[in-house]
Write a protein that binds this DNA or RNA. Sequence first.
DNA 1: ACTTTAAGTTACGTTAACGTAAACGTCAAT
DNA 2: ATTGACGTTTACGTTAACGTAACTTAAAGT
Lengths: 131, 131
Amino acid sequence: MSKKTYTISELASEFDITTRAIRFYEEKGLIQPAREGRKRVYSTADRARLTLILRGKRIGMSLDESMEIIAMYDPDHGNRDQLKELLGRVQERQLSLQTQLEDIQATLESLNDVEQRCRKALGQHDQQGEL
Amino acid sequence: MSKKTYTISELASEFDITTRAIRFYEEKGLIQPAREGRKRVYSTADRARLTLILRGKRIGMSLDESMEIIAMYDPDHGNRDQLKELLGRVQERQLSLQTQLEDIQATLESLNDVEQRCRKALGQHDQQGEL
DNA sequence: ACTTTAAGTTACGTTAACGTAAACGTCAAT
DNA sequence: ATTGACGTTTACGTTAACGTAACTTAAAGT
């Protein structure tokens, strides 16, 4: 059962962000840690949310977008219409993520090209870094 | 030989951005279109740069980062040390792009999950949208 | 009692990436 | 000659995502 709860600075150092950032996410409604008196107490669920937020950031999503995706996980969408709407948003996201994936692959290919030319000009071939 | 030159609004509508944005990229030194009098004239090379910039944006890169990558393409790095430095930066980029790729794949998987649950709750199975 | 140490609140500052508006030039068509 | 459709420069405005004080409170150790 791992650890169950975390303090703000634990999470901050684990994810290498500032406590200010974490509180900011809270202001924005992305996380709602419990309180012990005035201290914030983070659950593993909060930690999971943070993971999603930061993953989102790495792929260029805004906080609002991350929040949307997070919201997709919990099942508060009771009726059929809401579900259909959700499904629609999910599919849109999937499409744009697909584009992103291709963009990254294209960029990686170009960089591979650059890399090869560098190595060639340096007289190396395909070494992995042997000093 | 396609078309050779473009006006600013041609590019703007092609890439679906404003002319203001294009001029902004110029201010930032990302593109240097030729001039005919005071009019900007964009070459296919400029167009290619725009492509890179926008691809960069889609994967969450800043303009500075895009500029770095663009700079990697042209061979103005005469000496060995510069080449080694370049190679280093290229490899760093490749690593972070790799991470991004994995982040996207993870997100896609999660969304697939959400999608399946939606469909299940809606009583569908794996249709592609047949109205 | 005193001092770290960690947390909190409040509020203003900052950077990036444009948007928007004002005011003007240019050329073709009416 | 004027009206648009495009282009230009200059400059101020805006939003997101925090950073950076500045100050306070609470808990823990010596």
